[in-house]
Design a protein around this nucleic acid. Structure first.
Length: 344
DNA sequence: AAAGCGGGGCT
DNA sequence: AGCCCAGCTTT
């Protein structure tokens, strides 16, 4: 076997973290862990994984849950389409596969929320099938090891790195090989300060020879952040508040929020409030800044105290103590905790 | 091919 | 403030 694979295997046996999804070959649990970990650090996803396994021990339990329950449990983890697709796929596996998680790569890849990385991960971890994973860690490790200057965020780059990973794959134990490669990226070949002194393949690492580790991997696209101004109206109706579900293709789809007026600047005119809600007395509370990857949100909260409220289409009245059961954006959770709205 | 989608940790 | 994370879907 090749130097690279032998070296990372040995390192992996000695230095890998003990993680719950590595102790099973239950493809349901492996699938669950992979969806949770998409674009998410292990430290952040671990508790969610434990919660989900506890609440939904089998795919049948997940399929029987409501989407609201699943989103509520997913609350705070971000990229909520993952939760909606997870639930959709659980129902599909029960309906179309009698609850038996598919094994063949093409079947796994066809599942909603499963792309080429996740399909390769599930197939190699659960069934030891020879598919090479390419995630953010793999891009970084391979780009540095071979000093590949092809941008990873280009179509050609994706192919170059997938081909490289395919060639490098240890076909005797693809599952261990894939995990070792990713673990190396997560623990040693880290983005900002790689621990080359303790890297098992430092001897043959091309970028280390050149001292150019930090210039890899190459990315061309820059993140552009747009500003948004959100005015939330917290209608307090005795011991209840008004919520509605976000159903647009926008951030937080599927989560619940307070009635909202979005504006082009921080200015909200009285006319806009009048047109939307009629004659109300709103007390402007506070503006919170909330940073998402691609958006900077300025959320101003207005409190409206009324004895009665005629709900409009899609709106519901929820007791404050029951708010905990609704999946809501982290920004609103933060506000409600600050104002003790959960217990009001 | 490019844009859109969260939240948190690290530098 | 910018970058990155066990990426995928939609446009």
């Amino acid at each position: 076997m090749a130097y690279f694979s032998i070296s990372i295997h040995q390192w992996f046996r000695q230095s890998s973290r003990s993680l719950p999804w590595r102790k099973t070959n239950n493809s349901y649990k492996i699938w669950l862990s992979e969806i949770i970990l998409q674009q998410t650090r292990v430290d952040q996803g671990l508790n969610y994984y434990l919660k989900f396994v506890e609440n939904f021990p089998t795919v049948f339990d997940l399929a029987e849950a409501s989407e609201d329950q699943v989103l509520n449990l997913w609350q705070g983890l971000g990229y909520y389409s993952r939760a909606r697709n997870l639930h959709f796929t659980a129902k599909l596996i029960v309906d179309q596969y009698d609850g038996v998680f598919p094994t063949a790569y093409k079947d796994v890849l066809s599942l909603k929320g499963v792309g080429v990385y996740t399909a390769a991960a599930i197939c190699s971890f659960a069934s030891n099938l020879p598919y090479a994973v390419v995630d953010g860690n793999v891009y970084r490790v391979l780009a540095r090891y071979f000093a590949v200057d092809t941008p990873i965020d280009s179509t050609i780059g994706k192919k170059v790195f997938q081909d490289l990973a395919d060639e490098l794959l240890d076909r005797e134990q693809p599952g261990n090989h894939n995990q070792a490669l990713m673990e190396l990226g997560a623990l040693v070949c880290t983005p900002k300060s790689p621990d080359c002194e303790n890297c098992p393949v430092a001897l043959m690492c091309q970028s280390r020879k050149e001292g150019t580790q930090l210039s890899f991997p190459i990315k061309t696209k820059k993140i552009k952040v747009r500003k948004r101004y959100l005015h939330f109206f917290v209608f307090c109706v005795k011991d209840k508040v008004v919520l509605l579900k976000r159903d647009e293709n926008d951030i937080w789809k599927g989560l619940y929020q307070f009635p909202l007026i979005e504006t082009d600047s921080e200015i909200l005119s009285g006319d806009e409030v009048q047109n939307r809600f009629g004659d109300i007395t709103a007390i402007t509370d506070i503006t919170l800044k909330h940073q998402l990857t691609h958006q900077t949100l300025f959320a101003t909260f207005h409190r409206v105290f009324v004895d009665e409220y005629q709900t409009l289409k899609g709106e519901i009245l929820v007791k404050n103590i029951d708010l905990i059961d609704y999946g809501m954006p982290q920004l609103l959770i933060r506000y409600m905790e600050d104002r003790d709205i959960f217990t009001l």
